[in-house]
Simulated scan of single mutants.
Amino acid sequence: MKILLIGATGMVGSRILNEAISRGHEVIAATRGNKKLEFLDNVVEIVLDVNDSEAVAEQASNVDVIVSAVSPRNTEDAFADAVTFTQSLIAVYHKIGKRILMVGGGSSLNMPDGTNALDLTPEGILPEASGMRRAYGMMVHEDINFTVLAPAGIIEPGERTGKFRLGGRTMLTNSAGGKGNISAEDFAVAMLDEIEEPKHFRTIFNVGY
């Protein structure tokens, strides 16, 4: 497949890029331009502003799917940033009709007891978390082909095991009933699995151990 990956140099995006390449996919790796990728086969690196829907649509016109690994910067403007880039992705879909997969946040999920996971989010990352939850809500209210994959709580660099659990909008918890976790490497495996064999449509699901 041919994939447009937006945010290809980020912590999660770079793992998605590596996983896609390992499976033989072609990737247009879009970055903000402040980092350079090492030379990789089957990768075309471009500088792209996710908020420029015309430019994104042009780059995505010949791909199979769009993957957004963009996260709002954790500042007081994070909520507005998430709304802006989500509006752009929605506009792109209406222009060219390509499936969109988004890296979501655990704050977009609900706990097993029904509690909104956003209510358990530390204040320091609340703007970013609120923005990601709003982004999911915006996608739901549009008639578009999208999927959001969220980590079950904590996501950080780690090991690629290929062994994990999948859940719906209810967060997969750890053995103590608290927020779960997933390595960025295994998150990427789950994302590529969904790209290759779509099973979740117009919804959010989560991955955790």
Rank of each mutant, 00 (worst) to 15 (best):
residue 1 M to W: 02
residue 4 L to I: 13
residue 4 L to S: 03
residue 5 L to S: 00
residue 8 A to Q: 07
residue 10 G to S: 10
residue 10 G to K: 04
residue 11 M to S: 15
residue 12 V to W: 00
residue 13 G to A: 07
residue 16 I to M: 11
residue 17 L to M: 06
residue 21 I to Y: 00
residue 22 S to I: 10
residue 22 S to F: 11
residue 22 S to L: 12
residue 23 R to M: 10
residue 26 E to G: 08
residue 30 A to Y: 02
residue 33 G to D: 08
residue 35 K to F: 03
residue 36 K to D: 13
residue 36 K to I: 08
residue 37 L to C: 04
residue 37 L to Q: 04
residue 38 E to C: 12
residue 41 D to S: 15
residue 42 N to G: 12
residue 42 N to V: 09
residue 44 V to F: 02
residue 45 E to G: 13
residue 45 E to P: 04
residue 45 E to C: 14
residue 46 I to R: 02
residue 46 I to W: 00
residue 47 V to L: 13
residue 51 N to S: 12
residue 51 N to V: 09
residue 54 E to F: 08
residue 56 V to N: 00
residue 57 A to G: 13
residue 59 Q to C: 13
residue 65 V to R: 00
residue 66 I to V: 15
residue 68 S to D: 03
residue 72 P to Q: 05
residue 75 T to S: 15
residue 75 T to V: 07
residue 75 T to W: 08
residue 77 D to I: 12
residue 80 A to N: 13
residue 83 V to I: 13
residue 83 V to H: 01
residue 84 T to G: 01
residue 84 T to M: 02
residue 85 F to P: 02
residue 87 Q to H: 14
residue 93 Y to A: 08
residue 93 Y to N: 10
residue 94 H to G: 08
residue 95 K to R: 14
residue 97 G to Y: 11
residue 97 G to S: 15
residue 100 I to V: 15
residue 100 I to T: 04
residue 104 G to H: 03
residue 105 G to N: 00
residue 108 S to Q: 06
residue 110 N to I: 14
residue 110 N to W: 05
residue 111 M to L: 15
residue 111 M to K: 14
residue 111 M to D: 05
residue 112 P to R: 13
residue 113 D to M: 11
residue 113 D to L: 14
residue 114 G to V: 10
residue 115 T to I: 11
residue 118 L to D: 01
residue 118 L to Q: 02
residue 119 D to L: 11
residue 120 L to R: 13
residue 123 E to I: 14
residue 123 E to S: 07
residue 124 G to D: 14
residue 125 I to C: 08
residue 130 S to Q: 15
residue 132 M to W: 02
residue 134 R to L: 07
residue 135 A to T: 01
residue 136 Y to E: 11
residue 136 Y to L: 12
residue 143 D to F: 00
residue 146 F to M: 06
residue 147 T to V: 13
residue 147 T to A: 09
residue 148 V to Y: 05
residue 151 P to W: 04
residue 152 A to C: 08
residue 152 A to Y: 07
residue 153 G to K: 09
residue 153 G to E: 12
residue 154 I to T: 11
residue 155 I to E: 00
residue 159 E to N: 12
residue 159 E to C: 11
residue 160 R to Q: 10
residue 161 T to N: 03
residue 162 G to I: 12
residue 163 K to G: 01
residue 165 R to K: 11
residue 165 R to F: 05
residue 169 R to G: 10
residue 169 R to F: 10
residue 171 M to K: 14
residue 171 M to C: 14
residue 173 T to C: 14
residue 174 N to D: 08
residue 174 N to Y: 06
residue 176 A to E: 11
residue 178 G to P: 03
residue 183 S to R: 00
residue 183 S to N: 03
residue 186 D to K: 11
residue 189 V to Y: 04
residue 189 V to P: 01
residue 189 V to N: 04
residue 189 V to A: 08
residue 191 M to H: 03
residue 193 D to L: 03
residue 193 D to T: 11
residue 194 E to T: 12
residue 195 I to Y: 00
residue 196 E to M: 13
residue 198 P to S: 14
residue 198 P to M: 03
residue 198 P to I: 05
residue 199 K to F: 08
residue 200 H to V: 14
residue 201 F to P: 10
residue 204 I to L: 05
residue 206 N to D: 08
residue 207 V to Q: 03
residue 208 G to W: 03
residue 208 G to I: 02
